Computed example of a mutant assay.
Amino acid sequence: MTAATSSLVGWDDAAAVAGRLAPPGPAVSRSEAEHLVASLHSAARRAVEPVLEITAMTPADGRDLETSPLSEILVVDRPGWARAAARSMRDMTEDAFVLPPGAGAALGAQVAASTEIGATLAFLSTKILGQFDPYSAREPGRLLLVAPNVLHVERELGVRPDDFRLWVALHEQTHALQFAAAPWLASHLRDRTTALLGAMSTTSTLREVPPRVAALLRAVYRAVRGREGATLVDGILTCEQQVELDAVTAVMSLLEGHADVAMDTVGPRVVPTVRAIRRKFEKRRDTSGAADTVLKRLLGVDAKIAQYRDGASFVRSVTREVGTAGLNAVWTDTSTLPTALEIADPASWVRRVHG
């Protein structure tokens, strides 16, 4: 970005706000924290082999996973995740919000948009267990595990820590493998997201853009990170933009559902208490306090449950019909990705792709 151009969003400011507002996690001793970090690193490494076996997928570059990692593993706290998420949003959207030379956004509006995004990420930092970031500047992408959230949830559920940590890592390493097996996927999502967000600068006045950008960013970020829901963007999307958002959301339903199926399919041989973990986790997903429920609904966090479940239903239905090899056709190229209608009707995807 040159001196003659400016952005609608101050990403450094958003990252700083997110990091400052993210609350600390459960209190632990130094030795407990060190053990937790080491355990999560170990779980992420151990998750790779069963994920490869269950999915029957391999990295497209043919890398030897004995010597080259499937992902860079980072164990972070809540502020660390919040700052990383802001940077990921910046990298994912690239130059979608760069204004033409001489057309600067009002400083107050930019600050307001950056603060709103940062505050949203700070709230989400208490909910995220892990995340694979394919937009990291370093190859092969970063797998972030949020240590305080993993600890909080495993205590709340009363599950075996080693089993739960491996279960979470299985989900995230499945995401790492998805992007490694389909190296075109990250750029495809970035291109569609950038096109969608960039349209905001042509459908709004400069005065309207920053708050609309903040709202739309929340919706798109939920979609590409598995948190779909348009509660706060009702009425601001054009029909064309809604179609584009639906398309991105369909892809993410596939990714999240595929990862959810993989983490359960490993079975008791890999995670002895996997069935008990899933049962307790689903119950937790479906229940929360009144205040928390309102915030989740406003931010669209609760809608991720339907997205995960719809995607998992698609994966299971397609696998029953054409097997794992048939399902893996989704990673061929952009033309074999499911549409929103096909996520709801898996048989239609099978007919289109397999005849």
Rank of each mutant, 00 (worst) to 15 (best):
T334I: 09
A16M: 04
M57N: 04
T115M: 09
R63D: 03
S317E: 10
R160P: 00
E256L: 03
T231A: 15
P161N: 09
H354K: 10
A182K: 08
P101T: 07
D286T: 04
D12S: 14
I128S: 13
T339E: 10
V168F: 08
D260S: 14
D163P: 02
C239L: 14
Q178W: 03
S7R: 14
A176K: 02
L166K: 04
L40I: 04
N149E: 09
L299K: 08
A103D: 12
G102H: 04
G108C: 01
V153P: 02
L206W: 13
A303Y: 11
A247H: 11
A214H: 07
D234L: 15
R192W: 02
E32H: 07
S88A: 14
L166Q: 01
D64W: 11
L295D: 10
A291N: 07
G19A: 13
D163I: 04
H152V: 00
L206P: 00
A147R: 08
S288K: 12
A186P: 00
L144A: 08
L52G: 02
A329T: 13
R285D: 11
F132K: 02
V248S: 00
F281Q: 09
R155P: 01
K280D: 08
V76P: 03
G108M: 10
A291H: 10
P161Q: 12
A181G: 05
V98K: 02
E172C: 05
A85N: 10
V76L: 15
W184C: 01
E172W: 09
V75E: 07
P183R: 03
E49F: 09
L341Q: 13
V224W: 03
S6W: 11
V17E: 04
L107M: 09
R190K: 12
L40M: 07
V350D: 05
G326N: 07
P69E: 10
P140W: 14
F281V: 00
H188E: 06
T273A: 10
I117M: 00
D333W: 06
R225Q: 13
G108T: 07
P23D: 08
V271S: 03
I73K: 05
P272N: 04
L299A: 11
W331T: 03
F281L: 13
L70F: 06
A303G: 12
A122R: 06
V271D: 01
T273W: 06
T324G: 10
T203L: 08
I277F: 09
D286I: 01
L124M: 14
T293L: 15
Y135L: 04
E34W: 09
M200Y: 13
P211W: 15
F164M: 03
V146N: 02
V301Y: 15
L157K: 07
F314P: 02
V322H: 07
L52M: 05
K283E: 12
S39I: 00
T194A: 13
S313A: 15
I236C: 01
E32P: 00
S288M: 13
T174G: 08
G80L: 07
G323W: 08
E172I: 03
D345E: 15
V261T: 06
L99K: 00
T334P: 06
K127A: 14
V294K: 12
D61F: 10
L144I: 01
S187V: 06
S7K: 09
